[in-house]
Amino acid sequence: MQLEAMDRELMCSGHVGCPGCGATIAMRFALKTLGEKTIMVLPACCWSVIAGPFPQSSLKIPVIHTAFETGGATASGVRAALDMRGDEETTVVVWAGDGGTFDIGFQALSGAVERNENFIYICYDNEAYMNTGIQRSSSTPYGAWTTTTSGSDWKKLRKKNIVEALVAHRIPYAATANIAYPEDLVRKVRKARETKGSRFLHIYASCPTGWRIPAEMSVRIARMAVQTNIFPLYEVENGIDYTINVKPREYLVREYFKLQGRFRHLSEEDLDQIQGMVNEDWERLLRKAGERA
């Protein structure tokens, strides 16, 4: 792995994440790339806890913990203050979960990126409210069990396509990334750091606790999300220029679903239907990128 900053470690051991937590892997690689001149805005999410209780912290950068729905707004204020103090060097980064991004924080995020506020917004996506104990969010995928979509009431609605919502704001840079593709992730964080204006990264971060998978499967399942086209890796510049970064081997989604307890209730027919949905989304993405299926 040719990565200039891999020796740099701005996240300490001793954090309180669950074994196999994808969000900690995402944080570690992101910080290696972002470097010390970073201020992090951390709205309520798993990482509010993972960072450790007062007076401890597993992060070696300044962090402002803030209310659930305020990531975009708080970061706007931090950036404004740094600009007034003449500090253009420090990067302001929001680090939020899917609930704080797709749901309760969406307004503040949309408002901030419409103003093209100069910060990076990183959403680590574990596809439900995991910190409160696995409740469905608008990021929870079709078919998933959560504690609020249980039994026969499993989620029968699509996951919100957050990147496309951000792309619709015509921001300078929006991209997906995945903990199982660290070179790609690091490159995108670096690209985001070097871009001005509103930048958005959507990082797939598996959750063994909430997905009912063994901790050691965390990275493998993350990789399969890309290889099945469930979570394509791509980036969009200025809301227009699409680039697909990984051309997957197109495993069947069935293989991804079968490994996870949260999808255990799905029938073969359900899985066929989901395969159709994934194919349809992939073809739409290819068209946007000007490529053929």
Binding site: I39, T74, G77, A81, R85, G111, R115
Partner: peptide, 27 residues
């Protein structure tokens, strides 16, 4: 000599001031 943030709600307004004041300026 100030920054004026035209936020999208009062909630975001106070959040922005919390961010700005925490980063060391008068708001």
């Amino acid at each position: 000599n100030a920054k004026y943030l035209r936020v999208e709600s009062e909630h975001s307004c106070m959040a922005a001031l919390i961010g700005a004041q925490s980063a060391g300026v008068r708001t």
